[in-house]
Design a protein around this nucleic acid. Structure first.
Lengths: 147, 147
DNA sequence: GTAGATAAGTGGGAAATAGTGGTAAGGAAC
DNA sequence: GTTCCTTACCACTATTTCCCACTTATCTAC
């Protein structure tokens, strides 16, 4: 299971190290695509196949599913992990996530079967906003038998 | 069942011993994640798997589910217990719980199926506040036929 | 009550690994 | 042919992890 939060820096060649905890599970080849809330989603190949098959089988009748698939499938790239566990994210995806062109910090968040990639600043802001809904969160925790 | 309150110190390498009473029951691998009221939740692996499977099945379509999973799953880490029963809590979780960067005291509280981890000072304050409402709580418990 | 023994908690050092930076080689474009 | 960009490889450093040792506390037997 992919869980946890890790911050890594992007060097001047735009290379970003994957968190060690994710390297083994996610494999040597990953798929990165547009995520929701201005982040990127990263999947291991196996997970990606499952998900893309589901999406591919969606009826294309509705404009909204077409739009979603264009973003989610059309915006996806297969990326190789280099020998020391770094990835190189294409510019159009980096732009979507607001990753700086220069040296900067990137946050990886494991969410069960995928990893989300965030610009550090956006992540911090999102977290603050998110925590304002603590009551909803508590309610959900109750539903799941956590508290 | 995990019950009782124990105070332990965190050394300069940020290692914290688990209370002996919890070690056997909770096992060699635990999961720690964001809790409510600025504490952390710690689960044994078996308990965690139950919970996370439910959470993983949540759709990512709704913003609230995404937010919840980002906090609860993204905020979770699998932590190994070392040979003498200590754990190492990642910085982002330590920050959430207000655990000092330096040597300090940490409180473990067993609450049925999980252990809560508190900064000692926050725990004391919370306890004081909480005791003020004990009468109300007792009344509620009475309603439910507990006491 | 005291002494010994066992377990628990704390501390430090060495080895392994992760993260980052740089260099060189291979291609593509001009 | 030259230059620029990309990719792969190599090397260093800081951090993490693992292991061992010491101190403190608890329990038991005498």
């Amino acid at each position: 299971m992919l869980i946890g939060e890790y911050t890594h820096s992007q060097d001047d060649k735009k290379r970003i190290s994957l968190p060690a905890k994710f390297k083994k599970e996610i494999g040597k080849k990953v798929v990165i695509t547009h995520g929701l809330d201005n982040c990127l989603f990263m999947f291991g190949i196996k997970e990606w196949v499952k998900i893309s098959e589901k999406l591919g089988s969606l009826s294309m009748g509705q404009a909204s599913s077409r739009g979603f698939n264009r973003m989610f499938l059309g915006g996806a790239v297969e990326v190789d992990v280099d020998s020391v566990g770094r990835i190189l994210i294409p510019d159009f995806l980096r732009e979507h996530a607001g990753l700086s062109d220069k040296v900067g910090k990137v946050v990886f968040t494991g969410v069960y079967n995928k990893v989300e990639i965030w610009d550090e600043l956006r992540w911090k802001n999102y977290k603050v906003e998110n925590l304002k809904h603590v009551d909803d969160i508590a309610e959900k925790l109750g539903e799941f038998g956590v508290i």
